[in-house]
């Protein structure tokens, strides 16, 4: 298991299927929450995750596809779209520093 430090995250991708619903909402939430931090948040379909992404956030059902599509990029899977503990932890390490096992 590898670890990533919050200070090294500058490009965060919320990966989704159609990109019209829940992932778009999560991306908007994260963008708002991380507005004051040097992190670019975008949403893309799982199949087109940019190779220079630092971290990928995706629903657990899509995590396997995300890992295949973006080998080597850490993936944070979540279960619920609002208030998921894994996403909260990620936001905390981006804001305050610290490592996240991925």
């Amino acid at each position: 298991m590898a670890a990533i430090n919050g200070k090294d995250i500058h490009k965060l991708i919320v990966a989704c299927d159609a990109g019209m619903g829940s992932s778009v909402m999560l991306a908007a939430q994260l963008r708002k929450e991380l507005k004051k931090f040097p992190v670019e948040v975008s949403h893309t379909p799982v199949a087109s995750i940019p190779a220079d992404a630092d971290i990928v956030v995706t629903h657990s059902e899509l995590a396997t596809r995300a890992r295949q599509a973006a080998p080597g990029i850490p993936v944070v899977p979540f279960e619920v779209f609002i208030g998921d503990p894994a996403v909260k932890r990620l936001v905390t390490i981006i804001k305050e520093g610290g490592d996240l096992d991925v």
């Binding site: 299927d17 159609a18 019209m20 619903g21 629903h59 059902e61 899509l62 609002i82 208030g83």
Partner: peptide, 17 residues
């Protein structure tokens, strides 16, 4: 494939690509 239930009794059904 991926349920659209958000929590707090709300779901946001939508289509695929």
């Amino acid at each position: 494939s991926v349920p659209t239930y958000l929590g707090e009794g709300v779901a946001i059904p939508h289509g695929t690509t």
